[in-house]
Simulated scan of single mutants.
Amino acid sequence: MKTLPKYHPTTPHILIEGGVEFHLGKMKGDTINYDFSKMLIYLNAKGKLLFGKEFKIHEEDHQIIYQLCLYFIKDEVNCPKYNIDPTKGILLSGPVGCGKTTLMKLMRHLVPHRRPYEIIPTRNIVFGFNNLGYSIIEQYGNSHYFCFDDLGVEPEGKHFGKDCNVLGEILLSRHEIFTKCPLEHRTRAMTHITTNLNAEEIEERYGNRVRSRLREMVNVIGFDKNTKDKRK
């Protein structure tokens, strides 16, 4: 995991990167009033540090980034306007190359005073299952804070000749833990997901039970299906 920015516990809206201070908003009493334009400046600078000087935030992505910012700063006023529930995770969907994984790697640096999530490629999880078996489902179907990257590109699991829909089983296990958590502790069992699949494709791949339970676990934020591939 990349090093999170430096900050002082009493001023978590002031982040320090390479000796430069980024003020993401202003304190008013015990509340931080974040400024989206200043958050964009920070995210663009942090993105260049993480991914190279060619990184840039595209104007057409501002609406998606704005919603993600609202979610991560837990903006109680504006989250409901976008039907975002900060007590759930994020399912970030969109076509190949639109920048889903990059954004999820970047956004966790915006709020370093909050518990960070670990980003795990779904392919790696299935490869682990094929080698080690059902202990992998226990490892990821627990209350740790994960972002499962590229849901849907992973192969079917197979261990000692037995097929297993590994991510489907993990998501069902995590749903059970998530719904049993008291509301104030749900971040402990929260799940984020990036995927190229739409809702119907998720149901086709993982079944109606998984699709139904995902509705209880995540907020869906989606890129337009015509978003260009930024890797080209």
Results as ranks from 00 to 15, higher is better:
residue 3 T to R: 10
residue 20 V to F: 02
residue 80 P to A: 10
residue 134 Y to R: 14
residue 206 Y to F: 14
residue 214 L to P: 01
residue 161 G to I: 02
residue 65 I to E: 03
residue 30 D to E: 12
residue 218 V to W: 03
residue 164 C to R: 10
residue 212 S to E: 06
residue 209 R to Q: 13
residue 47 G to W: 06
residue 221 I to Q: 08
residue 1 M to S: 10
residue 154 E to T: 12
residue 183 L to T: 15
residue 97 G to E: 09
residue 96 V to S: 14
residue 162 K to C: 00
residue 31 T to C: 06
residue 82 Y to R: 10
residue 6 K to I: 04
residue 203 E to H: 00
residue 38 K to L: 15
residue 103 L to M: 14
residue 138 E to T: 12
residue 96 V to K: 14
residue 170 I to N: 04
residue 58 H to G: 01
residue 33 N to D: 11
residue 181 C to W: 05
residue 169 E to H: 05
residue 200 E to A: 15
residue 72 F to L: 13
residue 231 R to P: 09
residue 65 I to C: 07
residue 125 I to F: 07
residue 74 K to I: 08
residue 208 N to F: 06
residue 34 Y to V: 07
residue 105 K to H: 11
residue 1 M to F: 07
residue 195 T to L: 02
residue 71 Y to G: 02
residue 73 I to G: 05
residue 178 F to E: 01
residue 8 H to F: 12
residue 111 V to L: 05
residue 121 P to D: 04
residue 105 K to I: 00
residue 93 S to M: 11
residue 184 E to V: 09
residue 92 L to H: 07
residue 209 R to H: 07
residue 71 Y to A: 01
residue 204 E to K: 15
residue 207 G to M: 04
residue 170 I to T: 05
residue 17 E to K: 08
residue 47 G to Y: 05
residue 189 A to S: 13
residue 159 H to V: 01
residue 56 K to L: 12
residue 78 N to S: 11
residue 87 T to M: 10
residue 6 K to A: 14
residue 50 L to N: 05
residue 222 G to S: 15
residue 203 E to Q: 12
residue 149 D to W: 02
residue 83 N to V: 10
residue 53 K to V: 03
residue 141 G to V: 01
residue 192 H to Y: 12
residue 146 F to A: 00
residue 140 Y to C: 02
residue 215 R to I: 09
residue 11 T to C: 04
residue 173 S to C: 13
residue 224 D to Y: 13
residue 125 I to A: 08
residue 135 S to T: 15
residue 173 S to F: 10
residue 132 L to R: 15
residue 206 Y to M: 10
residue 115 R to I: 09
residue 58 H to T: 03
residue 110 L to I: 01
residue 158 K to W: 00
residue 107 M to H: 08
residue 205 R to S: 13
residue 100 K to C: 04
residue 49 L to D: 13
residue 99 G to T: 06
residue 182 P to S: 08
residue 183 L to K: 15
residue 78 N to K: 14
residue 105 K to E: 08
residue 17 E to I: 12
residue 112 P to R: 09
residue 124 N to H: 09
residue 124 N to V: 02
residue 78 N to P: 00
residue 196 N to F: 02
residue 133 G to N: 06
residue 19 G to R: 08
residue 5 P to F: 03
residue 53 K to L: 06
residue 81 K to M: 13
residue 200 E to D: 13
residue 139 Q to Y: 09
residue 29 G to C: 06
residue 201 E to A: 10
residue 175 H to Q: 07
residue 78 N to M: 13
residue 189 A to L: 03
residue 202 I to C: 05
residue 3 T to A: 14
residue 153 V to N: 11
residue 110 L to D: 06
residue 74 K to M: 11
residue 195 T to R: 07
residue 166 V to L: 09
residue 158 K to M: 12
residue 164 C to H: 02
residue 144 H to K: 11
residue 150 D to L: 02
residue 51 F to D: 07
residue 90 I to F: 00
residue 109 H to G: 04
residue 205 R to F: 07
residue 110 L to F: 04
residue 112 P to S: 11
residue 94 G to T: 02
residue 216 E to M: 10
residue 66 Y to N: 11
residue 148 F to Q: 01
residue 222 G to E: 15
residue 215 R to Q: 12
residue 223 F to A: 11
residue 74 K to P: 06
